[in-house]
Design a protein around this nucleic acid. Structure first.
Lengths: 352, 352
DNA sequence: GCGTCCATCTGTATCGATTAAGAAAGGGGT
DNA sequence: ACCCCTTTCTTAATCGATACAGATGGACGC
């Protein structure tokens, strides 16, 4: 027997087989209340018999306008993006809530090349959660015109977002240190790509190279600065956003004449490395020098790191909800943060 | 002025505006060689003028049958899946090569509920890289019938795959230890979900609970067993696949009467934790007890861990290539592995 | 001068479903 | 008996592009 020519079994095939219209078959799949249970069972039976895998995804997408996919836009390489615990926790929350809508998450890079721009524009997504700090703005605008809902992870005037108030969060941290008597403070900022450690003294009118204008780094720097005496703030930009990068940045921050009495890392991973650096110099965190982090990752508790807690997973969950549910009433969500004080901060040591 | 009614600007609109046929507009986008550069520029200019965001993704997908999306199927929760460095490295490689095809990666959970099954079936993907150890077989079969190319990350008789020879890799490790004089060996296996540490003595005819039949864990166990005397192999199943889980499993493996002289962890992260446990007991890895890992993560070098290196990123890259390029000739790829011997293994201590 | 060929464009039949609107059949109420 | 409602199914019009088979016109060879 000659093998039958590849029979493309479609909804029509099924309909003819059962002796009903395609509309009824369609209803059997997507609106079971529109037909009798009997007939539906019959159709489903015939479907498995024919090996019909269910409605074609593309046909469905074209007609209904839905893909059941939520894009997640991040900047930098995937290996960088996901070696960051913050990203993983956020992504877990995001995908958890996206899954509740029967949808999945598509990983999207902020485009840098022509090909990546294409990939972003060709992405079959209903919504996009843009975690990207910067740029890729035109690309996102094009997507919006395509009807893609955009959700940002940072406050902005218009559009949907879920975020925290970065400046005031940073002020919380700074105030804590100032109350403890600290005056000379260094902020260590992460970098998205690998680079050299660099250092500046902060002035709000002069942007820090590599720190974009509306970025959370910049907002936090500003917040810290507002709580300090003028010219008291130095900035060290780490070579990445890893514990190792934190160690290196810590070295740079500590091995100076006029050693700071406190270091604020804009991420916990950096802070962990800074703690390493502090201990490697025989200093005791919280006594000889204070260290603060941001995010309050689980390990912060283990290491006794004072950190500004933000509900990362919840942020991801809410982002997913805004993305997948256009009718969710609250479209701009500001999450509460909380300073968790642990052993790594203490009174500033008396000047030597 | 009343705001114009939402004009859905489609390819037809654009065509009429420029005074050409839709076919030409389509060509302007997807096959620039089919028309004069002049006309193409004209069309593109009109496109930006009208705010046309390019061909509709759904229309394109339906007609051309392409989505430019590659699914990545993993088991367990996303937070578990991506707290594993192996997964991140693999995913980087995968997405790197997938991006070269102008495509993106869709995160897909091995379905456990009805909703997740739906999400998997509704996924707009051209191909699926199935990293999932087990089950979800029916779901994958349905996808195959949909025309989705399946790529596995483990050898199998039929279909596309890229993997390593797990049994022989495991034998490499075991032989290394046997030559060093080790006789009492424990293998520590990871678990996909959090659970309790448990322990058995291994016999090839009796499956280890929680270790699926064709899984790499099982294949490796088998390989190790083949190099040892009968009944010399114990198995400890860790409570997860993290350094902490490794510490706990290490405790279980070490704190016994007849302490093993060597421990093989089936993943490096577990091995790291086991090293911690060894040191916590005042023992010196490589002298008092030997420890081996699998994967050879970057940190293995730092910690002096003997480990079986497999080219994880390359595996991901090749999987992506097989997934996105149906014409790639080599459809079943066995990658070479290599035992990297470091300080954590040494001669078995003389029997006390 | 004539046939050929190439470079450019057009016409039109799909791709595979969804959905609103309508028809047919049965069931009650009065 | 008649009318009105439901329930259950069908008809037919899209959704927005792609790709094949042609049509057109000018350049070119001989």
């Amino acid at each position: 027997m000659v093998p039958a020519a590849e029979a493309p079994v479609t909804m029509k095939t099924l309909a003819e087989r059962v002796g009903v219209s395609v509309a009824t078959v369609s209803n059997a799949y997507s609106r079971p209340d529109q037909l009798s249970a009997d007939l539906r069972d019959q159709i489903m039976a015939a479907a498995t018999e024919l090996g019909y895998p269910g409605p074609s995804v593309a046909g469905r997408a074209l007609r209904s306008g839905r893909n059941d996919v939520c894009g997640f836009l991040f900047s930098g390489e995937i290996s960088h993006a996901f070696s960051d615990p913050y990203a993983i926790i956020f992504l877990s929350g995001l995908s958890e809530s996206v899954e509740q809508f029967g949808a999945s998450v598509l990983l999207l890079k902020a485009p840098t090349t022509e090909g990546e721009t294409q990939a972003l524009q060709r992405a079959p997504i209903d919504a996009l959660v843009a975690n990207s700090t910067v740029s890729s703005q035109e690309g996102v605008d094009l997507l919006r015109r395509r009807g893609v809902r955009i959700v940002r992870t940072r406050p902005s005037d218009a559009g949907d977002w879920v975020g925290i108030n970065d400046p005031s969060a940073a002020r919380l941290v700074a105030r804590h240190l100032v109350r403890l008597g600290h005056r000379r403070i260094v902020v260590v900022t992460p970098a998205t790509a690998n680079g050299r450690v660099r250092e500046w003294s902060y002035r709000p009118d002069r942007p820090v190279p590599g720190v974009a204008d509306g970025s959370y780094e910049n907002l936090r720097l500003r917040g810290v600065w507002e709580e300090l005496e003028p010219d008291a703030l130095r900035v060290v930009r780490a070579g990445g956003n890893t514990r190792e990068a934190g160690r290196a940045a810590g070295a740079r921050a500590l091995d100076v004449q006029d050693r700071p009495t406190a270091v604020i890392a804009l991420s916990d991973v950096l802070a962990f490395g800074i703690l390493d650096a502090v201990r490697a110099r025989g200093l005791e965190p919280g006594r000889d020098i204070s260290v603060c982090g941001f995010d309050d990752l689980p390990e912060a508790d283990f290491l006794g790191l004072t950190s500004l807690r933000q509900p990362i997973a919840e942020k991801g969950r809410l982002a997913g909800r805004l993305a997948m549910d256009p009718d969710y009433p609250q479209r701009q969500i500001n999450l509460a943060v909380q300073l968790v004080v642990r052993a790594s901060t203490g009174p500033a040591p008396a000047d030597r």
